[in-house]
Amino acid sequence: MLPLRSLLPALLTLALAAPASAQDNGISDPLQPLNRQIHALNDGLDTYLLRPISQGWEFITPQFLRDALRNFDDNITFPVNAANDILQWKWRAAGEETARFGINTTIGILGFRDVASDWGFPKQDEDTGQTLGRWGIPPGPYLVLPILGPSNIRDGIGLIGDSFLSIYWIVAPWYVSLSYRSVDVVNRRAIADEDVAAAKAAALDYYVFLRNAYSQRRQALIRDMGAVETEDLYAFDDLYDFPEDEEEDEEDDQASE
């Protein structure tokens, strides 16, 4: 906790000082040199450590077990989802999340089976970073966290909130929590393998790919995949124009470069 606490003021100052550059749809990345290095480190860890382990895991486990473990972990994130639903004043969603937790913990046998999805209570994806976003706090500069990957100042702060809301740190000693988290990460990496491979194959610059995909995805999550229409969150309003048709703009741009 100590290093984070001493870093926070510095990070917050950065967040306020850095203007959003127009470089990538308004995503600001003043820490890019450092971010790229951490990204390279994470990518190396993934390629040479996490993925091989997860492939081994995939080899020795049947799919129903991998799905069951994933469902179990989804289920125990209930406090994170429910608390953030309430903090975003989504009382109906909080109720649904509670019903979901009740159904899956009992009928779904401690959450290993996701029965609630079929009963009309789909999995929710809420966290403190989204709550801060819904409250109007901007993302701030892009951050690549060691091991954890893409984030930004706001969502990085949100992670601290999430960890306070998580069950396992409270109910289990640290080494149990850590072992559990490790298995969960390996398991999820195995499940996501095809998606990761597809992303790497599609990207021409994997760093920029992740930076943009992360930012778009977070924006979409904050407005609950389009269920909430908040004008100010549409960053890509000119996405479907042909900017090169606007002769005058173009000339101005080139003159200023």
């Binding site: 990207a203 924006q219 996405l239």
Partner: peptide
């Protein structure tokens, strides 16, 4: 003209990559 998967637009994503590549090496590098 665009596919948006789980909130991530293909056009926006490639645009950001190509923008970055164009400003670091231009059309030849792209």
């Amino acid at each position: 003209i665009d596919v948006v998967i789980e909130g991530v637009s293909l056009v926006a994503n490639f645009r950001s990559q190509f923008q970055d590549i164009m400003s670091n090496g231009g059309a030849d590098r792209l």
